[in-house]
Simulated assay, not measured.
Amino acid sequence: MNLAVIAPPWASDDEALALRATARKFFETVAVPNQKRWAEQRFIDREFWLEAGKLGLLCLAVPEEYGGGGGTFAHDMVVLEEQSRIEEPGFGNHVHSGIVAPYLLAYGSEEQRHHWLPRMASGEVVAAIAMTEPGAGSDLASMTTRATRQGDHYLIDGAKTFITNGGSADLILLAAKTDPAGGAHGVSLFLVDANNCLGFERGRVLDKLGQHSGDTAELFFDSASVPADSLLGDVEGMGFGQLMTQLPQERLLLAVAAAASAQRAVDLAVDYTKNRHAFGKPLFAKQHVKFELAECATLARVAKVFVDDCVNKHLDGSLDAATASMAKYWTTDIQCQVVDRCLQLFGGNGYMRDYPIAEMYANARAQRIYGGANEIMKELIARSL
């Protein structure tokens, strides 16, 4: 396939095309043969992260002085599109490179950046972000995890859940209240060294409906001690503002993956219906099947055009939070709708996990929940009207 034909406008130069070719070959030859095993063991091999680092597929938007690729958000999105193309949900690079690394770049000290980013770019360190709690999901201001200053350390108490990369992360970007009475203004972010933090324990890797290869986990902090210089930012209480500034990019990441998944569902269904025969003819010959695919293909195309426009706006700094929320909610709704309609065209085979469309169906459902539930996205959009 000519990669230039499918390249979006924000990733159509020679460098981006070469990156796409490298990422595609890597995912097809290294990830695909291991996907079943990863799903059974509930985590991605660390060797895969290290190999991705060697190929320069991690932290592409991180400047070279910190060990990164020296590119832009667009380069990380090329890798995410290729990952979505083979439907590998467990490789949490979208969190690692697309969320945690930008926080370090935007708010970290020089010492923090030089300590963490080069090892994140190499795959030696895997990163996670811990916001959600058992009693506080999308309502981040209501989190109960506490961080209390004790001399040159903070003592952290609380629990987090649904944490992507939580079972294996070496670095955890943790949200906690440093001023419990301060509401949103009392939230601070911390860089927790998960391998050197007394009082920190990982809970179980959660048994999810889909995305089985991802080590989504519970995290527990019992007077967990972290150095005072682990605070992200100059002073306490900056965390909620940092989160609100960065969340639109997280939501755009989910939209990029959603659009890619919707298109893959259409591609799989077209191929299946053209090769599957019923009543002496290919399924594709039936008008109902053709019309279903025509509608799904149109929805997938519109989603991609919308997402590409959002990426362009994000690259030039003009993407607003409401539009990012629109992209997240609408494309993930479309993803679930298109995957469901395409699965129907597979008949009974669509319900069998031997067929990728079945895995896509289970994997897609979380997209409408994490990153801010779609109902919250609509609330945020409405506030801008």
Results as ranks from 00 to 15, higher is better:
207 D>A: 10
257 A>R: 10
260 A>S: 11
166 G>K: 02
78 V>F: 06
335 Q>L: 13
265 A>M: 07
258 A>D: 01
8 P>Y: 01
258 A>L: 02
262 A>R: 08
185 H>L: 15
33 P>S: 02
70 G>H: 09
325 S>V: 05
55 L>R: 15
33 P>T: 06
249 Q>P: 00
84 S>P: 03
97 S>D: 14
51 E>C: 06
223 S>F: 09
106 A>H: 13
92 G>A: 15
260 A>F: 00
52 A>V: 01
319 L>I: 04
136 A>N: 08
145 T>E: 07
6 I>S: 10
39 A>E: 12
43 F>N: 03
204 R>F: 14
155 L>M: 07
271 D>K: 06
368 R>L: 03
157 D>R: 14
343 L>W: 02
127 A>Y: 03
229 D>L: 04
221 F>T: 02
235 V>H: 14
325 S>E: 09
247 L>K: 15
221 F>P: 00
19 L>Y: 07
76 D>V: 04
304 K>F: 00
68 G>W: 04
214 G>N: 03
342 C>H: 13
183 G>N: 11
194 A>C: 06
104 L>W: 00
2 N>C: 09
336 C>M: 12
93 N>M: 14
152 D>V: 00
157 D>S: 12
226 V>F: 07
14 D>G: 14
31 A>S: 07
172 I>P: 04
154 Y>I: 08
28 E>K: 13
46 R>Y: 04
216 T>D: 06
222 D>A: 05
242 Q>Y: 08
256 V>W: 05
165 N>K: 00
196 N>A: 15
215 D>F: 02
35 Q>C: 07
323 T>F: 02
278 A>H: 10
19 L>T: 10
375 E>Y: 11
202 R>A: 10
106 A>K: 15
40 E>V: 11
230 S>A: 15
198 L>C: 08
27 F>Q: 00
188 S>Y: 07
257 A>Y: 04
113 R>C: 12
67 G>R: 02
129 I>T: 13
132 T>D: 10
123 G>Y: 01
109 S>W: 09
107 Y>K: 03
347 G>V: 13
364 A>N: 08
375 E>M: 12
143 M>G: 14
368 R>I: 11
289 V>E: 06
87 E>C: 10
314 H>L: 07
139 D>M: 12
57 L>A: 02
48 F>L: 02
47 E>I: 04
297 A>C: 09
319 L>H: 07
37 R>C: 00
276 R>H: 12
227 P>T: 04
176 A>H: 03
345 L>S: 01
242 Q>G: 05
200 F>Y: 13
224 A>V: 09
99 I>E: 11
97 S>W: 09
18 A>Y: 00
